[in-house]
Design a protein around this nucleic acid. Structure first.
Lengths: 240, 240
DNA sequence: GAATAGTCTTGATCTAGGTCAAAAAAAGCC
DNA sequence: GGCTTTTTTTGACCTAGATCAAGACTATTC
């Protein structure tokens, strides 16, 4: 098996991040291949996992779109992230062997289930897998810190601009258009992620549209001026 | 070397979390012991690491108190955490081999420097070390999600109550009083963590004091009614 | 394809927490 | 131990975004 085949095999099952950058020989790759227990299809609206359920596997998103969120006792919902192809879900559950958030599919999706015990075992045998796994966990921490900055310091326009630019970036990284895409989530869900009410999301979309920064048609988004959108962030003079 | 000695050795260098729960034989422990390169004293106001600097080691806090924070271009500061004895700093830097936040000592402190490459090496040899390291990273993710919930959904009183209860809990876990302690940070720094202005922190302290929930004397805090404070959180009826 | 439920937009109003200001109290510093 | 600087408190006022409400638009279902 040559590098090209390995790359292909990796990407089919969203293992890109774990096995790339590649330093694997074919024997090593064999073991990695065994990691994936099975694929699982999740219908829109179905849960991949729920708070309190026992953890045993991480999930690599093969395709589709997920939302993860916490539910506070009184029903308040905090969306902790929106997740797309190639991303890894379940990292939070390693700490206590119990899932600490809910993960729901926002469109029909498919994931690869990776038994965590097996991943740790392979990590031991294949240094590059361990290294990349650590990088993935660390990246999640960095992402979370970025969200804290957003929630703690930015006004509504900045938050939404950050959100749109982040989606744009991630779509682009997957070979999709960075400036023309469909939102998979409602205004309310965007609000629950950004710490804003759905009305504020709607109003801010309208404002961006009036200013010619973007075109919004329900869930269909066109970013017309990426640079201007970037300027919205960090243009602040007095805020919080 | 028996378990007691190992435990003692671990705790002297804040390795508790990495080597406990213990399943180590003495040979395994030897290798763990080699992990710690050196101790380093950090004076109040000095930086342990800064954004952009090359990453090579994690730091275990032996004693003292740190604040980590992000600086947005326009000078806005988001405190990402306050850290005390036994906690691990630098996890964010693994993702890109560069520190992504600043860590400053809020009192004279001492840390153990742990070269990350060596930690990964030992992880490979000693499964329980790997396991615990993964749990520590995951726990940081869970903590961050909790902060998102706080920043995205809670009002000022709830935020401050969560903050106080969290400190209380962590002091207690270190054998200190859960209800009588000294704050190491200013009102402004608390605000920069909780997404509030220092005036709001001050006013909310005053309010809690008027209500008999606590006694505040500058940096000296006494929590008089822990239960009532817990009730402040999640008592919300309409918020954000 | 009509009915129903969910989602989105926009306007009017309200309020929690920000901003500005000034004085008091602590903490560092020669 | 007095002097400067930093931190904290409190009051008066203001504003971004929440809340409430109503209508329009979309998607789903039978």
């Amino acid at each position: 098996m040559d590098i090209q085949q390995i790359k292909a095999a990796c990407s089919t099952c969203s293992l890109r991040e774990l096995c790339l950058p590649l330093g694997l020989n074919s024997e090593e790759f064999e073991s990695l291949d065994k990691l994936v227990k099975q694929r699982r299809k999740i219908k829109r609206g179905d849960y991949l996992h729920r708070t309190g359920l026992r953890f045993s596997s991480l999930y690599a998103i093969r395709n589709g779109f997920f939302k993860t969120y916490l539910l506070h006792e009184d029903g308040r919902e905090q969306v902790t992230g929106f997740h797309m192809t190639g991303e890894l879900l379940g990292l939070d559950a390693i700490s206590s062997d119990v899932h600490t958030c809910n993960a729901i599919a926002l469109e029909d999706s498919e994931v690869c289930e990776m038994p965590f015990a097996k991943l740790e075992e392979i990590s031991r045998a294949v240094p590059v897998v361990m290294r990349n796994f650590h990088k993935i966990m660390s990246r999640e921490i960095v992402r979370d810190h970025g969200v804290m900055l957003l929630l703690g310091n930015m006004n509504a326009e900045e938050r939404l601009a950050v959100f749109l630019l982040n989606l744009s970036h991630r779509f682009a990284a997957r070979g999709l258009s960075p400036s023309d895409f469909k939102l998979r989530m409602t205004r309310e869900e965007i609000g629950a992620y950004l710490g804003l009410k759905l009305e504020t999301i709607s109003r801010t979309f309208s404002k961006f549209q009036e200013e010619g920064l973007m075109e919004v048609s329900n869930k269909h988004i066109q970013l017309l001026k990426l640079d201007a959108l970037k300027k919205v962030v960090g243009n602040d003079t007095s805020c919080r």
